[in-house]
Design a protein around this nucleic acid. Sequence first.
DNA 1: TGCCAGGCCCTCTTTAGGGCCTT
Length: 194
Amino acid sequence: MSDNRSIVFFDLEATGLDTDVCDIIQLSAVCGKRVFNAYILPTRELTASAKQVTGFTVSGGKLFRDGVPTSTVPLADALASFLDFLRSFAGPVRLAAHSATRFDAPVLTRVMRRLKLLPEFQRLVSGYVDTFPLAKNLFRLSSYSQQNMVRHFLGKSYDAHNAVADATMLQELFNHWNPSAQAVQRATFSTCVF
DNA sequence: TGCCAGGCCCTCTTTAGGGCCTT
């Protein structure tokens, strides 16, 4: 049994898959029953596939999800609130996401750096846990997508690509797996490598 | 068709190519 009290599960929805340029649209995090969520109005257009996958659109300077208007905050405010959320835990936390090293970590690091928040972020976050290699090391499956694994292990379908639901389901998956501390350590990466 | 992300992993590999995973 690993000590997962310090693991915060998070997820980003963004304007596309290019980690060098995409804008964050939704930033969510879950730890136990504590939930963080923020929507941000993007400055660049969503790719066609991002629109299709996430259901987000921008019209008239407003953000919509599945056609429903959504309240947004400036990116700097969202990140400051996120840091406040992380600061509320005792000691540095680990941030867990599915394919964190391929997508979420480089994007989050880039925007933190751009807004000169990276030193504080790195003070609050000791590392990233990537649940994709974690799952590959633990199980032999035909698919390691989060949606497939939620179906396989939890027998559930859910509102995938809503970042709150994705982070919540990831936490549930992790708790179901109950991985050893050694297994989690093997799937943990420093915040300094992005 | 002009472009469309990219790095890891696997294998019918290594002088390569295709699928996966995230939006």
